[in-house]
Amino acid sequence: MEVRTIKVFTTVDNINLHTQVVDMSMTYGQQFGPTYLDGADVTKIKPHNSHEGKTFYVLPNDDTLRVEAFEYYHTTDPSFLGRYMSALNHTKKWKYPQVNGLTSIKWADNNCYLATALLTLQQIELKFNPPALQDAYYRARAGEAANFCALILAYCNKTVGELGDVRETMSYLFQHANLDSCKRVLNVVCKTCGQQQTTLKGVEAVMYMGTLSYEQFKKGVQIPCTCGKQATKYLVQQESPFVMMSAPPAQYELKHGTFTCASEYTGNYQCGHYKHITSKETLYCIDGALLTKSSEYKGPITDVFYKENSYTTTIK
């Protein structure tokens, strides 16, 4: 009895394709271990004539594949690729409408935090270190965002349907971005203890939790000093293409032309909904596939993004 075979390709990165001759009487799992086709788990399936010449994702289970996976995804987590594939199996079914010149995501599976993050990423200057993220990001900007969303979920250790947080998501993504040249110098002034300067680099240099107003941050924000008295913390120097200011959701007025974009969060910790506000020729609110415009805006804002380049204080 002759062994019926077909020729397929296996890959971990969709760049390096490895030619395989597979036995049609055995499952993919018996031949390769966990195997995925377009995100779908085909591990328990036997090869079919229609699979001839198709590319299958496999887990990096030998040295060659491990090197290829690390170079593309910059992670050695053995569960990463499987999590990416199972997320992709959902995100490829989502709709990605162009809204006001940006790629958004039609609401499904509690994905409003991903839509808000995706919209924000198209408006701030950011370059990702893992080629996987950078490639998928370019495709997302062009309207094909399924891979990018699935990668975000995998890097953030999230599953489809789980509630997510924009600030946490951005923080994970910033860790995989090139923020080497970003720098922030802060000064804390206390009447009792004097003053202390701190220099922050990388992710810490672009994120701040405690106030939404970048102007206020430049002037000074009140913080408790270690001595128990009130101290003032203010920005001395900022070198970065953008800054992200966050605070627990509270009524906040966004003035046209003073910011790049913002995240609105309605609801409580267990259950809520994100919308995205962007400042173009007027203010726009993007909620999944829905767009509304207004000249002014007041609502429960939790993150505001500002364009920056270089700032030095005039406070002496």
Rank of each mutant, 00 (worst) to 15 (best):
Glu2Ala: 12
Lys218Asn: 02
His48Val: 11
Tyr138Phe: 12
Tyr172Asn: 14
Asp135Ile: 06
Phe70Asn: 11
Arg83Trp: 01
Lys44Met: 11
Pro224Gly: 08
Gly29Leu: 06
Asn16Pro: 04
Leu17Gly: 02
Thr226Arg: 13
Thr282Gly: 13
Gly267Asn: 15
Gln31Lys: 11
Ala177Phe: 01
Gln270Asp: 15
Leu173Arg: 01
Lys201Phe: 14
Glu125Tyr: 01
Leu186Phe: 12
Thr159Cys: 15
Tyr57Gln: 05
Gln222Ile: 09
Leu186Ala: 07
Ile301Thr: 03
Val236Leu: 09
Val42Pro: 06
Ile277Asn: 00
Ile6Phe: 12
Leu65Gln: 15
Gln20Val: 12
Cys156Gly: 07
Tyr234Val: 08
Glu125Arg: 04
Asn110Leu: 06
Gln98Cys: 10
Tyr265Trp: 06
Thr302Trp: 00
Ser181Asp: 13
Lys158Tyr: 00
Ser240Lys: 01
Ile223Asp: 06
Gly267Trp: 15
Cys193Met: 06
Asp41Gln: 10
Asn147Tyr: 09
His90Glu: 14
Asp180His: 08
Ala142Glu: 12
Met244Asn: 05
Phe80Ala: 04
Arg141Pro: 04
Arg167Lys: 03
Ile45Tyr: 12
Glu215Asp: 15
Asn14Gly: 15
Tyr311Asp: 13
Met209Asn: 14
Ser86Met: 09
Ala142Tyr: 10
Leu114Ile: 10
Pro60Lys: 00
Leu186Glu: 13
Ile301Leu: 04
Thr10Trp: 15
Gln216Gly: 05
Val42Met: 10
Thr43Asn: 04
Asn110Ile: 02
Phe259Gln: 05
Cys149Gln: 07
Asn61Ser: 13
Val12Asn: 06
Gln237Cys: 11
Cys193Tyr: 02
Lys95His: 15
Tyr36Val: 02
Met244Lys: 00
Cys227His: 00
Leu88Ala: 00
Thr232Pro: 02
Thr76Tyr: 08
Thr11Pro: 06
Val221Gly: 04
Lys54Trp: 12
Asn187Ile: 07
Cys271Lys: 00
Leu173Pro: 03
Tyr311Phe: 12
Met24Leu: 12
Gln196Gly: 08
Val203Tyr: 13
Met245Trp: 01
Thr226Gln: 13
Tyr265Leu: 03
Ile152Asn: 00
Gln195Tyr: 10
Glu281Trp: 07
Gln197Arg: 12
Ser294His: 15
Tyr137Thr: 02
Leu17His: 09
Gln123Ala: 05
Arg184Tyr: 04
Asp135Leu: 07
Ala87Gln: 09
Asn147Leu: 04
Cys190Met: 01
Thr116Phe: 00
Pro300Cys: 14
Arg66Thr: 09
Glu144Ala: 08
Ala205Lys: 00
Glu2Asp: 12
Asp13Ala: 06
Ile223Lys: 04
Tyr269Met: 08
Phe128His: 02
Thr10Gln: 08
Arg83Leu: 09
Ser104His: 09
Ala108Ser: 09
Leu283Ser: 01
Asn187Glu: 13
Thr292Cys: 08
Ile45Trp: 14
Arg167Trp: 07
Gly33Ala: 04
Glu52Leu: 11
Met207Trp: 02
Ile152Pro: 06
Tyr155Pro: 01
Tyr28Ile: 05
Cys149Asn: 04
Lys46Glu: 13
Asn268Trp: 15
Thr199Phe: 11
Gly101Leu: 06
Ala140Thr: 09
Ala145Ser: 04
Lys191Arg: 11
Asp41Met: 12
Phe56Pro: 00
Ala140Pro: 05
Leu133Tyr: 02
Met245His: 05
Gly161Glu: 00
Arg141Gly: 07
Leu59Asp: 11
Asp303Gln: 00
Lys95Tyr: 14
Cys271Asp: 06
Tyr214Asn: 01
Asn147Lys: 11
Ala154Lys: 01
Lys280Tyr: 10
Lys158Phe: 03
Tyr28Val: 02
Glu168Asn: 13
Gly257Asn: 07
Leu118His: 00
Thr76Glu: 08
Gln251Pro: 15
Ala146Gln: 08
Val185Lys: 01
Ala231Leu: 02
Leu121Ser: 03
Leu200Pro: 02
Tyr137Pro: 07
Tyr96Leu: 06
Leu186Asn: 01
Glu168Thr: 14
Gly82Val: 13
Ala205Cys: 01
Leu200Gln: 10
Thr19Gly: 11
Val185Ala: 03
Glu125Gly: 07
Leu102Gln: 05
Ile152Asp: 03
Leu133Met: 03
Ala132Pro: 02
Phe56Ala: 05
Gln197Met: 09
Phe217Trp: 01
Asp303Phe: 01
Ile315Met: 15
Ser181Cys: 07
Gly267Pro: 13
His273Pro: 04
Asn187Thr: 09
Thr192Met: 07
Gly288Phe: 02
Glu68Leu: 06
Glu264Trp: 03
Pro224Glu: 11
Pro241Leu: 04
Gly164Gln: 01
Ala262Ser: 04
Gln31Asn: 13
Ile286Thr: 15
Leu163Asp: 00
Met245Val: 04
Phe70Thr: 06
Glu125Val: 03
Tyr306Phe: 10
Thr260Gln: 12
Glu204Arg: 11
Tyr208Leu: 01
Gly202Cys: 01
Thr159Trp: 05
Thr75Pro: 05
Cys225Arg: 03
Gly210Cys: 08
Tyr252Ala: 10
Ser181Ile: 05
His90Lys: 13
Tyr113His: 04
Ala231Glu: 00
Thr103Tyr: 09
Glu239Pro: 01
Thr302Gly: 01
Leu254Val: 01
Thr35Lys: 00
Tyr138Pro: 09
Asn187Leu: 11
Ile277Ala: 04
Tyr208Pro: 03
Ser310Ile: 12
Thr314Asn: 15
Val166Lys: 03
Leu119Val: 11
Val188Glu: 00
Leu290Tyr: 14
Thr11Asn: 02
Cys182Ile: 01
Gln30Leu: 12
Glu2Ile: 07
Thr120Met: 11
Pro224Leu: 12
Gly202Glu: 01
Leu186Ser: 06
Ala87Ile: 04
Leu163Ile: 04
Gly257Val: 06
Cys149Thr: 08
Lys218Ala: 03
Gln123Trp: 01
Tyr265Val: 10
Val185Asn: 02
Glu144Arg: 07
Pro78Arg: 01
Leu102Thr: 15
Lys191Asn: 13
Gly210Glu: 02
Ile15His: 04
Ile124Pro: 07
Lys293Arg: 10
Gln237Met: 11
Arg4Glu: 14
Phe128Leu: 05
His176Gln: 12
Gly161Asp: 06
Val221Tyr: 02
Cys285Trp: 14
Leu235His: 02
Glu264Met: 09
Lys298Gly: 06
Lys44Phe: 13
Arg184Met: 04
Asn157Glu: 04
Val42Leu: 13
Ala231Gln: 02
Ala140Glu: 10
Leu118Gln: 04
Met85Ile: 06
Ser240Val: 02
Lys229Ile: 07
Lys54Gln: 12
Phe174Met: 06
Phe217Ala: 10
Ile6Lys: 11
Thr75Ala: 12
Gly143Tyr: 04
Leu235Ile: 07
Leu133Cys: 11
Glu308Asp: 01
Gly101Asp: 01
Thr43Glu: 10
Asn157Lys: 13
Val243Glu: 02
Phe70Pro: 06
Asp63Tyr: 10
Gly33Glu: 02
Val12Met: 12
Glu215His: 05
Ala40Cys: 13
Arg4Thr: 13
Met245Ser: 01
Ser25Gln: 10
Asn111Glu: 00
Gln222Ser: 12
Asp287Ile: 01
Pro60Ala: 09
Ser79His: 13
Thr302Phe: 00
Tyr265Thr: 08
Pro131Tyr: 06
Gly220Ile: 04
Lys46Tyr: 12
Asn187Lys: 15
Arg184Phe: 00
Thr260Leu: 15
Lys229Asn: 15
His256Asn: 00
Asp303Cys: 06
Thr116Glu: 05
Asp63Phe: 10
Gln197Asp: 03
Cys285Gly: 08
Val8Ile: 12
Gln230Glu: 10
Ile286Tyr: 05
Asp63Cys: 08
Thr43Met: 09
Tyr297Asn: 06
Lys191Gly: 10
Lys191Ala: 12
Cys285Ile: 14
Ala177Val: 07
Pro300Asn: 09
Lys229Met: 11
Gly220Leu: 00
Tyr214Leu: 07
Gln238Tyr: 06
Lys293Ala: 12
Asp63Asn: 04
Val304Pro: 02
Asp77Tyr: 05
Leu235Asn: 03
Val12Glu: 06
Tyr311Arg: 05
Thr64Leu: 10
Thr76Ser: 14
Asn16Gln: 11
